[in-house]
Each structure stands twice: as structure tokens, then as C-alpha cells.
């Protein structure tokens, strides 16, 4: 028996919007720790890891570890039927091949349930090693989204370079080149507007902008994004989900031939 009651149901709606275009089908794993997912895109270039900790749910019952295979597009269709202020409860019985999403309006005058078929998914679980990153950049998520969108109108790849001068995003395409430099800036009114750069040593890596733009669909989940870079490691683009956990996107670099 599984029953997870999320008062801030809009978080789940936003999570689905953030990952449904990257991943088609995925197993949601439910354990005492929380509700989690790890999945790669179809070309195995990017990986998404989601964790919503059990403490973040108003009610969290998970009698035994359960893995539920879902088509994310179909799940998104169902969650779109929930209002932004609705409380969402996820329910599943042991051995059932369906999951139920229950939506309650804030004043309890409307209750809806949507039952979705589960699917069997053979997914590979990858071990993500703890790593010391050469550079970690925290910046406003909207600023990062803007840069990725702007650069993708010029080129297909972005070179992200961190030096003591700041973080530079560069691209080149048929019509020309573009460089955006963000310097560390902690003299802002609100902490989420700051750009903070922790650099152990300079690093420069190249990534496909198509994936970066896909990751920025998580922007509504968090005011800030944290980007971790190391030579010869996938970049980590992390959006923290307030009080609950995180969504992390890993993207393998491109290497010049």
C-alpha cells in the first residue's frame, strides 16, 4: 500500500513539466527515504535524478519499496487536470497495475481521482559517484535559462568556462559568435539574485545546447540553479525543490575530435 499526500501539489506538476520532454518512460521508486526517479534520455546523453523526501509530504505511507513504471507524457496529462492550489495524493495498492492521482481543491469542495495504467520498464540504474568538482556556480535560474535560450539562437553547443574572472558561456554558429560572462555578484537585495562562483581550478567544457534548454524547463521549481563542472565529468545542473529535495540533470560533455 502506497499513499503519498502532497499539499503543494503544484510541485509535482512542475516536476513533470521539467522532465517529460527529456524522458519518455521512467520508474518512480518509492521507499522510506522518499519518492525518487532516475532516468536517461533515449540517446543516453543526459540523466535526470529526482528526489522528493518523505518528510516533505503531509502524509507518507510506503509499506514496502515499490517501483512504478509510468509514461511521463500520460502522467503529465493527468497532473494537468489538477489545479495549481490542489492537494495531490498518489495511491497504489500492492501488486496493482495502476496508480491513482487524487486531486483535492483547497477548500475540499472538489475531489477528483484519475487512475493511470502502469507499465513494465526495464531501466538501468546508474551509480553516480561522489565527486569533487573543479567549479561550482550558483546563479538565478531565470538568468541561466535566458542565456541558454539566447545562445541556442546562434549555435548548437555552449562552451562553459569558469576562471577567476567569472563564468563564460560561449557559442558559435553560421551567423557569428556570442559570449556571455557572469561575474560573481553577492551585493544583491535577495540571496537568490546572487551569482556565486566557487572555483578550485579553471575548467572549460562543451555541451549540447538542446539539452541545456530542456533542463531549464525546471526553472519554475527554484529561483536558483547550481552548476557543477569538472573536466571529464558530466555537468550537473541542479534545481533545489524547497523543503523537499532536488532535481538534478547530468549531461555528458562533447569532446573536440
Amino acid at each position: 500500500m502506497l499513499e503519498l499526500r502532497l499539499v503543494q501539489g503544484s510541485l509535482l506538476k512542475k516536476v513533470l513539466e521539467a522532465i517529460k520532454d527529456l524522458v519518455n518512460d521512467a520508474n518512480f521508486d518509492c521507499s522510506a527515504t522518499g519518492f525518487s526517479l532516475q532516468a536517461m534520455d533515449s540517446s543516453h546523453v543526459a540523466l535526470v535524478a529526482l528526489l522528493l523526501r518523505s518528510e516533505g509530504f503531509e502524509h507518507y505511507r510506503c509499506d514496502r519499496n515499490l517501483s512504478m513504471g509510468m509514461n511521463l507524457n500520460n502522467m503529465s496529462k493527468m497532473l494537468k487536470c489538477a489545479g495549481n492550489d490542489d492537494i495531490i495524493t498518489i495511491k497504489a495498492d500492492d501488486g496493482s497495475d495502476t496508480v491513482t492521482f487524487m486531486f483535492e481543491s483547497p477548500n475540499q469542495d472538489k475531489i477528483a481521482d484519475f487512475e493511470m495504467k502502469l507499465m513494465d520498464i526495464d531501466s538501468e540504474h546508474l551509480g553516480i559517484p561522489e565527486a569533487e568538482y573543479q567549479a561550482i556556480v550558483r546563479m538565478p535560474s531565470s538568468e541561466f535559462a535566458r542565456i541558454c535560450k539566447d545562445l541556442s539562437s546562434i549555435g548548437d553547443t555552449v562552451v562553459i568556462s569558469v576562471t577567476k574572472e567569472g563564468v563564460k558561456f560561449s557559442t558559435r554558429g553560421d551567423i557569428g559568435t556570442a559570449n556571455v560572462v557572469c561575474r560573481q555578484n553577492t551585493t544583491v537585495d535577495k540571496p537568490e539574485e546572487a551569482t556565486v562562483i566557487e572555483m578550485q581550478e579553471p575548467v572549460s567544457l562543451t555541451f549540447a545546447l538542446r539539452y541545456m534548454n530542456s533542463f531549464t524547463k525546471a526553472t519554475p521549481l527554484s529561483g536558483t540553479v547550481t552548476i557543477s563542472l569538472s573536466s571529464d565529468l558530466p555537468i550537473v545542473v541542479e534545481y533545489k525543490i524547497a523543503e523537499m529535495g532536488y532535481i538534478r540533470f547530468y549531461l555528458a560533455p562533447k569532446i573536440e575530435d
Binding site: 536517461m40 540517446s43 543516453h44 546523453v45 543526459a46 540523466l47 538501468e124 540504474h125 546508474l126 551509480g127 553516480i128 559517484p129 553547443t157 562543451t206 549540447a208 571529464d232 565529468l233 558530466p234 547530468y250 555528458a252 560533455p253 562533447k254 569532446i255 573536440e256 575530435d257
Partner: peptide, 14 residues
């Protein structure tokens, strides 16, 4: 030209 690596080059299956 550049080569796109895959995630499985860096992270191994459990």
C-alpha cells in the same frame, strides 16, 4: 567537429 559522449561512459550500471 565534436564527439558527444554518453552518460554511461562516466557512470556505471549498478
Amino acid at each position: 567537429d565534436s564527439k558527444q559522449y554518453t552518460i554511461t561512459k562516466f557512470f556505471s550500471k549498478i
